[in-house]
Design a binder for these strands. Structure first.
Lengths: 343, 343
DNA sequence: CCACACTTTGTTATCGGTAACAATTGCTGC
DNA sequence: GCAGCAATTGTTACCGATAACAAAGTGTGG
């Protein structure tokens, strides 16, 4: 990459003036070369780049940010909970941002209430981020949150119950319909549903899609169960479900919970899919490899992350850009955890 | 939090001088209050904080970084691959850094060769990070990598084959011994091993611990198999292993691969644990809930992240601090995937 | 009541780039 | 050959905080 990064031993890292001097031009010209300004003679450009190379010069982004007012950084607010989907989205966000020449700064929040989210956003604002991706459900926006998202282009990934930000989302309702219909098509009389925490709009949408599908099909709508996305909560729900012989099909709002449900059923002596069919949601890497392999809805998390970034960038370029929510399509992946009901 | 973040509508965010004016002091005093400088009268401190509150003032970290030379930021280089352990460590790192008043900036790399890692480090250096956590295995350090880690306190999480950085690691050898001995204690004649990619020092250490344990016990050492951490690669290995009737126990270097192995065995009609016992590594959330529940080695990833940060911070404070590798203890979690060999 | 030491606060220069504007150079066509 | 315009490069001020130093205020002992 560079020929000699550490030329002398002791002194501080080289600045633009050092490069300018070596190349025999002014600092401003160096700046222009490095920012890709069009009107620079090819010859000087080469000289400057050579000097940069020779000194191992690195731009000081703090100085650039201060002087230009642009930080080329996007902030992400995410929940301090470890989950698969979050990790995948984070990757999608980072790579998309990098491709656009932006870096990503993360702020995690432990809770979902407005002050906590506002505080995370405040930390990002201090770093002069140019846009914010809220990878958490925004339940109630307080004045601070509103103010931030008015001042800085903000996109919400989980959807939002407020007006403060743009939205990028998977069509959760359609996805839930897909899952529910798959089970009905197999011949099940009705479908139970283990939903995620109600605070998550995604969870609510899935539940809504499930309910709607059953109603449209004229089927009985069983009571809605709730977990917290964790395998353990799925297990607890499974212990309940497993005791009810009339349950033959369950649509679970996340793969991790689904495996918890399956385990509980297993322990209660009910086989999957022979006795009970299960559909999950997310299509995590393990879905195809645990036993039974899980029928599930694939969510293109990285794509969602990518789009969120694209959305934010568009708004950064043109703050008045329209706020059309984007939507990506879910897909049903049929594996071994679903089957027609026992005769 | 703040009373009125957006006082007027249009103007730019308030600066320190605005706060100073409102509080009737100089900008320097405001700076001192906000940096927790000791010699400030209580009364003025209160006045300043009130002004800060009223204006909804936020520090401009670019300016602070430029002027003080300290960015209060730690950089993390991670692999652009989605895996559970990475996500957990990321969380540990972020929370530990935040607790110390630092923010985290991430740079992902798609490959493990020196130029790619150097490039990721370069991006972090541009952001003036004060320390770097390399959450990737450093195979071969080139001059750039060396130069960076000499200039900036750097910690490697996966261990390192170079001398360029400090090390924080789980005692992988002891962990592998734990796993292997567990299987031998159950009565298995020997234990097979599906290792991770050799580039990862962690993977090599686990393989080493496994081999050593077998040799010490005077057992035959079967050929070492390799996967890439993914469930799919475990599945492929499982298809191989499953065809050999003499295999009764396998130690797999990651839980995700372990489930892949189990699935393959399952398809080949070999039961786990009745015919073959499996021990995994990581203790991911699903380990206890898939069937069979996986016996595995628990790695305290968040703790590792925390320690890595602690280590970096120590070196930031005192660049000459000793380079004692830290080590955290692994733990065996026995679940349903292991049993004595069939009679 | 003053000198000396310690607090507390203010002033000025500076970090390393970029914006805005000025100056120089090179080329066109008449 | 020179006006006129574009391309190229240089100059100066400034972004918003902090470091280093200077100055004013406070308190103590002799």
């Amino acid at each position: 990459m560079s020929q000699q990064t550490a030329t002398a031993g002791g002194s501080r890292p080289p600045g633009m003036t050092d490069v300018a001097e070596l190349a025999g031009v002014s600092a401003q010209t160096v700046s222009r070369v490095l920012s890709g300004h069009p009107n620079v003679k090819e010859k000087t450009k080469v000289a400057v780049l050579a000097a940069v190379e020779q000194l191992g010069y690195r731009l000081n982004s703090a100085a650039r940010t201060l002087s230009s007012g642009r930080s080329r950084t996007i902030g992400v607010v995410s929940l301090a909970t470890v989950n698969y989907s979050g990790a995948v989205m984070a990757y999608g966000i980072e790579s998309a941002a990098r491709a656009a020449g932006y870096t990503v700064s993360t702020a995690t929040t432990a809770s979902l209430d407005a002050p906590a989210i506002a505080s995370a956003m405040a930390r990002l604002v201090e770093q002069a981020v140019e846009g914010i991706v809220l990878a958490v459900p925004v339940l109630s926006a307080n004045d601070d949150v509103e103010a931030f998202s008015r001042r800085i282009p903000t996109v919400t990934i989980d959807g939002s119950r407020t007006e403060s930000a743009e939205v990028v989302e998977l069509d959760q309702v359609a996805a839930a319909r897909l899952a529910t219909e798959h089970l009905l098509d197999l011949g099940h009389q009705t479908v139970w549903h283990l939903a995620g925490p109600l605070e998550w709009l995604d969870a609510a949408s899935r539940a809504h899609g499930w309910r709607e599908t059953l109603e449209n099909a004229g089927r009985a709508v069983p009571p809605e169960l709730h977990g917290d996305w964790s395998p353990e909560s799925g297990y607890q729900a499974g212990l309940l479900i497993g005791r009810m012989p009339e349950v033959t099909a369950v649509f679970v709002a996340s793969d991790e919970m689904a495996f918890g449900v399956i385990r509980a059923l297993h322990e209660l002596g009910r086989r999957v899919p022979e006795d009970v069919s299960i559909v999950g949601f997310d299509d995590i890497a393990l879905a195809a490899y645990c036993s039974p392999a899980l029928t599930t809805i694939a969510q293109p998390f990285d794509e969602i992350g990518r789009r969120a970034v694209a959305h934010v960038l568009r708004r950064i370029d043109d703050p008045s850009a329209a706020a059309e929510p984007e939507s990506v399509s879910p897909q049903l992946v049929v594996r071994g955890s679903t089957a027609p009901p026992a005769a």
